[in-house]
Design a protein around this nucleic acid. Sequence first.
DNA 1: TTGAAAGCGATACCAG
DNA 2: CTGGTATCGCTTTCAA
Lengths: 321, 321
Amino acid sequence: MARLAGVSRATVSYVLNNTSAVRISEPTRRRVHEAAKELGYVPHAAARSLRAGHSRMVLMPAPTFPVGPLYSQFISELQWALGRLEYTVVQFGTVGLHGAEAARAWAELRPVAVLVPGSDLGPKDVAVLKRSGARAVVTLGSEAVEGAHALLMDHEAVGLCAGTHLYARGRRRIGVVVPEEPGLDAFSVPRLEGVRRALHGTEATVTDLPLAYEEAAAARLAARWRELGLDAVFAYNDEYAMLLMRALQDEGVGIPQETAVIGADDLMLGRLLRPRLSTVHIELPSGRDLADLVDRAVRNPGAAPETHTVLGASVVHRDST
Amino acid sequence: MARLAGVSRATVSYVLNNTSAVRISEPTRRRVHEAAKELGYVPHAAARSLRAGHSRMVLMPAPTFPVGPLYSQFISELQWALGRLEYTVVQFGTVGLHGAEAARAWAELRPVAVLVPGSDLGPKDVAVLKRSGARAVVTLGSEAVEGAHALLMDHEAVGLCAGTHLYARGRRRIGVVVPEEPGLDAFSVPRLEGVRRALHGTEATVTDLPLAYEEAAAARLAARWRELGLDAVFAYNDEYAMLLMRALQDEGVGIPQETAVIGADDLMLGRLLRPRLSTVHIELPSGRDLADLVDRAVRNPGAAPETHTVLGASVVHRDST
DNA sequence: TTGAAAGCGATACCAG
DNA sequence: CTGGTATCGCTTTCAA
């Protein structure tokens, strides 16, 4: 590269980085740029960050299970916002690694910040990441981890909303669908807990209803519906709600007269069902806000970890309750 | 690190990599391992791959729009399969970069392989990636790119299936929903083309129906349904099908008597609709197969690029047609 | 304005 | 069996 342009490597570096401290003559710049095009030269990111001692990579583990449109859009927005701040977002495919192992794998890449959904991370792991040069570690989950910033996604609030709404509509024997699919516990357990909390101290009862995301499972549950004697159900989310509602209707269970059904996530499909599905609308943190938090933390790594409760939950009352 | 263990950096490297060529005494190994734990030492991936001259990173651009469960699962499977072969999958958040720019950004990371969905990549860009050390470039899209392996996802086949099925069911005036959402053209245009091809040379007509993914848009389309005089519609996919079917039913259009509706993707929600939605089942390439292709290409970079047509399409006939 | 050289962290070779 | 040392590609300081 340097040879082809007939200049030194240093000069190449100056030109390609537009270093303002030194001024390079116009003809030289041209020669360098031409040589770069001709050779298809691309700088070596590893060498650069090795020398620089830091990078602008924001690392997050790639999701391992199908994720809804809500979260997809959140990620997109986040990438866009971090991109504007000149960070590079990298989703790292961590297949079977957990806790400490995963943290070490991430630390090897020396990211400037790490975003971790879920709560698979201990204080020890945070320390490893920080020692390896991460200036910000942010968890998105149900509880804060020592040493890391936290965006608390309070899924209990979702259940709380649903439970309160159903109680206000006069329902007293309330079922809560708990998906059997693995990986969803992190959301389903707090949602169930939220319903319990909403109804604590009242005469209402809460029954948990394990359910796999399959027609047959829903049919089996619907078949014994009348013996369960429930008058309402919070179905975890809109998709499970659709599954269960269909099965109940096929059994001749009247919705909402006999049983009220409420979902969560406020997906389009809920609006399309008949009766239209009531749901808990969930407001994720905006990608912009999270990007700003990351940027602040990176610029000022000494600051105390911030903990924000995000995730606004509010009932959208339609026809199924 | 080396200082704390009282040995040289080389020895550290030997111990931590279990280098078999040299044998290190047990006490020394212990000291090294203890020091590593104590310091929370993690090797520096950039330094390692700089020295080694290559990495085992497989790079793919992160999807920029919400992606369905089909594709999510494909990615998961792929990550798992490549993980088994000791590759590391990295989804790189390329926000607004296109073509050449994106290729250069990827090349900076010196990945051993690059997987690119879509066809935003020219032969020139493939060359840049290869010169930068990528031993395999694989495109997943509708057409092959010179120099790169290709997994052709033949979305025309999806339309072809749908068109053939509707014709066989006696339908002759066929509408095809084309989503107005940006980013979906890559799929929707070939699907429409496929329907055209299926009906070419017959007396049947094909009408394209632009539609935004909103209730109001669907209602407007349904309101002028009878004047369109169609007796069948291929709705791009199951979600658009649900949207349109609902609107048609609200207008009192009989399904399937008056208008047959078919979707695509074979999602769960189609089975839950009444009438149950006919659909085109799509078989994506298995993650395992793609992982093997990547591995083969990496081991033997000289070989001629392979082009495979993947994506099997088959009609699932239910009640809506 | 440009060139020479040090050094980031890990590895592989070659001496000790 | 272990320690020095050159090396990967790039940035940056210092001299020329």
